[in-house]
Write a protein that binds this DNA or RNA. Structure first.
Lengths: 136, 136
DNA sequence: ATAATAATGATAATCGTTATCAAAACAAGG
DNA sequence: CCTTGTTTTGATAACGATTATCATTATTAT
């Protein structure tokens, strides 16, 4: 039976209080400021647990260590090809429903049943797009 | 200047001759049958090179080691939540164009410029869907 | 408070991948 | 088809990220 732990709560809150998508290591360094006795294994262990219960989401970046997202609501991730920053893109309920139908139809192409989906967009973020235009 | 190598050619062909999405290790074991002297480092090195030149694609599965796809043409990946097999879903040019427009519009929501995208669908594949229905 | 059990933190172990480097393979010119 | 310069190879060490181990500590139910 699952027990409460100060550490798990702290990890969840720390992740929820951020808008970015930190690695386990970043989160660990962050939390150590308030809870110096915490161990890196505890961070990894709880991040896994929180993923399994659907409270957070693990995201696999193109390269480098895994990142974590404190927002389990479905949304789209954008990764900048230049600075590698990850941004969230939110879509309206109507658009989400339309998208889900499309996804379901695609899965049916191979006789499968879609349960969830994951969309990544790559390109140049606002900042890097501007920089690119200035330098050319 | 890039030089030809028997090994790189073999790796590319071995990957292209498969319909699945093997790991570097699987591909290595496979190739060793025909080319016993090949080393695992050569496989990793050439898979990276082939990705950089766009001849193949590296795909990051939800868990486990990276997988490789010998088909660089844009298509959608489906991963079964039950057996974890990965399937390809191909879409028509018309649909692709429509999708690209949608992707571009989404990127614009955060002032970004989309260059490429990557769609994953999760759920139950044809086989596992049938099994599930039989057992219930 | 007690007892049962789950979670922790330190750290060893593992896994996937990359770096190193001497030897072998390739490409171009004579 | 030798020679020379350059790239690639294969063996293996090194690395970074993550997971396993396990004695100790925290949490929960009674």
């Amino acid at each position: 039976m699952k027990k409460y732990s100060r550490q798990r709560e702290m990890i969840l809150q720390s992740l929820r209080n951020r808008v970015d998508h930190p690695t386990a290591e970043t989160l660990y360094e962050d939390i150590k400021a308030k809870m110096p006795e915490i161990g890196i294994a505890t961070v990894y262990r709880n991040l896994s647990d929180l993923c399994e219960t659907g409270q957070i989401v693990k995201i696999k970046s193109k390269n480098g260590p895994d990142r974590f997202d404190g927002n389990p609501e479905p949304h789209i991730h954008f990764e900048c090809d230049s600075c590698h920053e990850i941004y969230d893109i939110y879509i309206h309920d109507v658009q989400t429903k339309k998208m889900d139908n499309e996804i379901q139809r695609l899965a049916e192409n191979i006789g499968a049943e879609a349960e969830s989906s994951n969309i990544w967009i790559y390109g140049f973020c606002k900042k890097c797009k501007l920089l690119k235009n200035i330098n050319n």
